[in-house]
Computed example of a mutant assay.
Amino acid sequence: MSDRHVFEYALLRVVPRVERGERINAGVLVYCRAKEYVGARTHLDEARLLALDPGVDLPGVRAALRAVEGVCGGGDLAGQAAPDEPGRRFRWLIAPRSTILQPGPVHTGLTADPAAEADRLLGLLVR
Score class of each variant (00 low, 15 high):
W92S: 11
P105Q: 12
A82F: 12
F90M: 04
R89F: 00
I94A: 02
E85D: 09
T99K: 14
P96W: 11
P105T: 10
Q80E: 15
I100Q: 00
Q80S: 14
A82L: 14
A95K: 10
T108D: 00
Q102M: 07
S98L: 14
T99W: 01
L101M: 07
P105F: 04
R88L: 09
A82S: 15
G109I: 10
W92K: 10
A95Y: 04
P103F: 05
P83R: 13
T111M: 11
W92E: 08
D84G: 05
I94Y: 02
L93S: 02
Q102T: 07
P83D: 06
W92G: 07
P105L: 11
P86G: 12
R91Q: 08
A112Q: 14
V106W: 00
A81S: 11
H107V: 01
G104M: 07
P105E: 08
A112T: 11
P83I: 09
L110S: 09
G87E: 01
T99F: 05
P96I: 11
F90W: 03
L101C: 06
R97W: 00
R88C: 03
Q80R: 15
V106L: 08
R91T: 02
P96M: 13
H107T: 03
L110N: 07
T111C: 13
G104Q: 09
S98P: 04
E85K: 15
T108W: 03
L101N: 03
R89D: 00
P83N: 09
G109L: 12
T111Y: 08
E85R: 15
E85L: 15
A81E: 06
F90Q: 05
A112G: 15
W92R: 15
E85H: 09
A81Q: 10
H107P: 02
P96E: 13
W92T: 07
L101Y: 02
A112W: 06
T99R: 14
I100G: 02
P86Y: 07
P103Q: 13
D84S: 14
D84T: 03
L110C: 08
A95R: 13
D84A: 15
P105K: 12
L101T: 04
Q102I: 04
F90S: 02
L110Y: 10
I100D: 02
T99D: 09
R97N: 07
I100W: 02
A112P: 07
R89I: 03
V106M: 07
T99S: 15
P96G: 13
G87I: 02
G109R: 14
I94H: 05
L101W: 02
G104I: 06
T108P: 01
R89P: 00
A112Y: 05
H107N: 05
I100A: 05
R88H: 10
F90L: 04
P86M: 11
A95L: 04
P103M: 10
V106C: 08
R97K: 13
S98D: 15
P96Y: 10
V106A: 09
L101H: 05
V106H: 03
D84K: 13
V106Y: 02
A112N: 14
P96D: 12
E85Q: 14
R97C: 01
G109H: 11
G109D: 09
D84V: 00
A81Y: 09
T111W: 08
A112M: 08
I94T: 15
G109P: 10
L93N: 00
I100H: 00
D84L: 15
L110A: 12
R88D: 00
T99I: 03
F90Y: 11
